[in-house]
Design a protein around this nucleic acid. Structure first.
Lengths: 134, 134
DNA sequence: TCCTTGCCTGTGTGCGGCACCCAGGTTCTA
DNA sequence: TAGAACCTGGGTGCCGCACACAGGCAAGGA
């Protein structure tokens, strides 16, 4: 049986994350009757590693909770895994596009500003650099 | 003088955003003594538009707060604007890279999984698709 | 024996930027 | 005169932790 620190090392996540997962019910420890410490079994270790891997693939903790509930009810989570990752891929592509556009706007602005002087406060504009942008 | 809704239309932001900015002190309304409604002057309208533009360039509300404090003290925020955007550009590039890598991992996984069957619960693995990933 | 060190506990807060909800008061319009 | 559309403050929720606080317990060394 592993304590918080032991599990965190075995699963390569931080102790805070272990406690967090336990708090939200993704990991369910038993307790050491002597001191109240959380005790995790091998099943919990597997789950913790699963969480790390799934998160590394873009699954949210909510997603992972769903997957666990499949597994706990004796159903294979695999079809759900395929469905979720397609969803997350689509969202991620949208984010990349959006972030890329923002980045472009930022770089364009910085470039344009190179030929513009700093303004002095005139009670009319706050910062003409920013105000020069659509 | 403009109410919340009036300002939101004039600055093209949502009424909730207006209230939010007022709550955190980025916009400071006066009050209608008759009914307690927030009243915004032209200065607030300029600020609200400035916020929308600056946010569109990736400035955070904290950044904007800093810029306002420069302007309020009679100093030009322009040098700070240039410094902040360079910082944000760097962060944004890092995010894009990171997200891109995640996306690649996700797409790779989905592709590899195409040739793998769904697993059935065996008490050993939770989902072999995810567990097949480093 | 005492002291330090390093675990552990629960609880609460903070991060960013709003969006939404509640319950109630006010103002405009038909 | 009724209903729609506005306004108020205050609270919660999102996401995934990270960090802080105050205290308890265990093992080691001087």
């Amino acid at each position: 049986m592993l304590t918080v620190n032991g599990l965190s090392k075995g699963a390569r996540i931080t102790p805070d994350a272990v406690r967090h997962y336990a708090r939200i019910g993704l990991l369910v420890p038993s307790r050491d009757p002597n001191n109240g410490y959380r005790l995790f079994d091998d099943e919990a270790l597997k789950r913790a590693r699963f969480i790390r891997r799934a998160k590394g693939l873009g699954f949210t903790l909510q997603d992972i909770r769903t997957l666990f509930s499949y597994a706990d009810n004796g159903r294979s989570p695999c079809p759900e895994v395929r469905a979720i990752i397609q969803q997350r891929i689509a969202e991620n592509r949208a984010s990349v596009t959006e972030l890329g556009e923002l980045l472009e706007r930022m770089e364009d602005a910085l470039e344009r500003w190179k030929s513009m002087p700093d303004g002095e406060p005139d009670g009319d504009e706050i910062c003409h650099l920013i105000e020069s942008v659509a």
